[in-house]
Amino acid sequence: MTDRKIRVLVAKPGLDGHDRGAKVVARALRDAGMEVIYTGIRQTPEMIAEAALQEDVDVVGLSILSGAHMALCPRIVELLRSQGMDDVVVLVGGIIPDDDVAPLKNLGVKGVFGPGTSTRDIVEFIRQSVG
């Protein structure tokens, strides 16, 4: 009886300490039938990549409000790749200026979700991206 669940790591890298948004998304993904591993605030890129590996997730969802996304996202993508997790879907949500969206996608971030995004769109995006 194969029961393949979509597994998602929700992490909050960087130093800002507020994770309300991340928790809302985590709950929405659970309610959409996914298994969500929630790791909490102040995660380093190394911690996130390692947790993603141990948990063998399909998706890594990052919540970044601090403005450090251009430093954090590429680092996390690079760490995931270096451990052979090339096909993990990396998403970022939070406060991301429009001008940064294209560069982030070029660096390997699959989806960027701004503050107004409905959780339903994120669920849909994940279902489409995870084969």
Binding site: V36, Y38, G40
Partner: peptide, 22 residues
């Protein structure tokens, strides 16, 4: 636990195990 309604789950134990990271 898996939610009996959605079949999804929120797995939050790692939050308390961050000392072990790395």
């Amino acid at each position: 636990p898996t939610s009996p309604f959605s079949g999804g789950a929120l797995l939050g134990d790692r939050v308390r195990m961050r000392d072990l990271a790395g």
